[in-house]
């Protein structure tokens, strides 16, 4: 069995994000980068599946050489090999899905396991688009996965409660927060990862072009949170919301 885990390099969610001086992007000074946390959960899940079944686990990332740092981390966690699709362009979700579809055709994995969304742009689209493009069954927001005899049984978290689906492999599954807690990257794993391969593919080798139909027109920081105040009771709260916020309650 073969698992393909796409991962994205994103700013560390615990670092302070500031806009660059021209507000066209974020200020990268002093910024740490990490594997997108949902993707890291997908890597962890792939490793756990691999511990039960015999699997080859490949991770793939799209970006410049810098994202090899995140690929190495996934290799250190236990993935077997890595692919970097060399690309310096900004992509939208559809552009990402198109590239991943080409990687899928090349790798022919039984399961694509990826984060439900990236914490930098919060699009939550690439997995769905990829499944649609490849005409594969999909399960999003997975909180439990088990694989038996070519079928993936996936529990998803929905607003109404949990839903369990059975998907015929190959399929695309996107990971939610409660799927698992990623392991610590053990030091011997980091040393082993030094000799694991990272293959670099160009867009032309994949016969695909970088595509971005969405243009960012402006970025702004969230307004600083105003100081709160205490109200004595619910009535006072309701009247404050009516008079100060204009809410019809």
């Amino acid at each position: 069995m073969k698992l393909l885990v796409p991962i994205k390099r994103v700013p560390d969610p615990y670092s302070k994000i500031r806009l660059s001086a021209d507000a066209a992007g974020i200020d990268a000074t002093g910024l740490k980068y990490e594997i997108n946390p949902f993707d890291e959960i997908a890597v962890e899940e792939a490793l756990r599946i691999g511990e039960k079944l015999s699997c080859e686990i490949a991770v793939v990332s799209i970006g410049d050489a810098a994202c090899e740092e995140q690929l190495r981390k996934a290799l250190a966690m236990g993935a077997h090999r890595a692919i970097r699709v060399d690309c310096n362009e900004t992509l939208d979700s559809l552009g990402v899905a198109k590239i991943l579809a080409k990687v899928f055709e090349r790798e022919k994995p039984d399961l694509v396991l990826m984060g439900k969304q990236a914490i930098d742009d919060d699009c939550n689209q690439a997995g769905q688009m990829l499944a649609g493009m490849l005409n594969l069954p999909q399960a999003t927001f997975a909180s439990a996965i088990s694989i038996v005899g070519g079928i993936a049984r996936v529990t998803r978290e929905t607003d109404e409660g949990q839903e369990t689906l059975e998907l015929k492999l190959p399929a695309v599954v996107t990971a939610d927060l409660r799927l698992n807690e990623p392991r610590y990257v053990a030091l011997p794993g980091i040393i082993k990862a030094r000799s694991k391969p990272i293959e670099t593919l160009s867009l032309s080798e994949l016969n695909v072009s970088a595509e971005c139909r969405v243009r960012t027109t402006s970025l702004s920081a969230p307004p600083p949170r105003a100081a709160g105040r205490k109200v004595a009771n619910v009535d006072e709260l309701l009247s404050a919301l009516r008079s100060e916020r204009g809410l019809k309650l």
């Binding site: 090899e68 740092e69 190495r72 981390k73 250190a76 610590y184 990257v185 053990a186 030091l187 980091i190 040393i191 990862a193 030094r194």
Partner: peptide, 14 residues
Amino acid sequence: GADERLMADTAFQF
């Protein structure tokens, strides 16, 4: 290097 920073990061997270 990157993998040495990763080792230090595992230590810090632990």
